[in-house]
């Protein structure tokens, strides 16, 4: 049960910070005596958190579904022709910095949340596709052979044997994807989407360090809470499959 402790601690801290930040006004006033408005009040922090989560959830869920589907498809005999392209693209695409992808997506698709979600989704697909392919291809051939020999249908073999064995790696890919998305979503504030990055950007342009600190703490806590949840899920279900060395943005 100790594995559940860490995500719970981060989650409690996150919720406490987003609902209680405004009441910390005296603290920020003491820390930054020169600031007239030491607490960001344009939107409530809880609302910002919700907007941020919505952006992450939409692109994360879609990236998960589409990414796993692509990974499964290119490892079936009928989709094998696309496997090379999928592998090359998912590996090469990840050398593109996510912030640059965001900066390119917006001019070619217009301002606002939709292009941002699309950019987040496209980028988020890459680790999921890569890890799904890796997870499915590392299933020992002997196991597949045995399943077929026992009379499993292709679908049953996929559902009962391949996906469960590939699950830790797929989940790890999803974790990398979601953590990157949390960071990149914050940057989407630069193209006019309201997220937890908004206080930071306003703070930077208005030289209000307190705003920057408030936004940064919340984004950091969100990322740590979500990462700890993935970690707990991996430990609980698969007895720990290592943490990824992937990047964030």
């Amino acid at each position: 049960m100790t594995s559940l402790l860490r995500p719970c601690v981060w989650l409690v801290l996150l919720l406490a910070a987003s609902f209680g930040m405004t009441s910390l006004r005296p603290l920020f006033a003491a820390l930054f005596p020169t600031l007239e408005r030491p607490v960001y009040l344009q939107e409530g922090f809880a609302a910002l958190l919700l907007a941020h989560l919505e952006l992450v959830a939409v692109s994360g869920v879609l990236a998960g579904i589409i990414g796993i589907a692509i990974g499964v498809a290119v490892t079936r005999p009928w989709g094998a022709a696309y496997r090379g392209l999928a592998e090359t693209l998912s590996a090469a695409g990840q050398t593109f910095p996510p912030v640059a992808v965001l900066a390119i997506a917006v001019p070619s698709m217009g301002f606002g949340p939709q292009p941002a979600v699309l950019a987040l989704l496209l980028y988020g697909l890459l680790p999921v596709v890569q890890n799904t392919i890796a997870g499915l291809t590392q299933v020992p051939p002997a196991v597949l052979d045995a399943a077929t020999g026992l009379g499993f249908s292709p679908f049953r073999r996929l559902w009962r044997v391949e996906l469960p064995l590939a699950a830790p790696l797929i989940l790890t890919g999803l974790r990398v994807s979601v953590i990157i998305t949390i960071g990149t979503a914050a940057l989407a504030s630069t193209v006019g989407v309201t997220t937890l990055g908004s206080p930071i950007l306003l703070g930077l342009s208005a030289e209000n360090t307190a705003y920057v600190l408030q936004g940064a703490v919340l984004i950091g806590l969100l990322a740590l809470a979500v990462d700890a949840m993935f970690d707990a899920a991996l430990t609980l279900f698969f007895a720990g499959a290592g943490r990824p060395a992937g990047g964030t943005s």
Partner: peptide, 24 residues
């Protein structure tokens, strides 16, 4: 390694923001 992992998990914009106040 887990400590450095926590740092990697914090999104860059947040880490930049967190360093702003102490360094200032």
């Amino acid at each position: 390694l887990p400590t450095l992992g926590v740092v990697q998990t914090i999104p860059s914009i947040a880490l930049f923001g967190l360093m702003l106040a102490p360094l200032a």
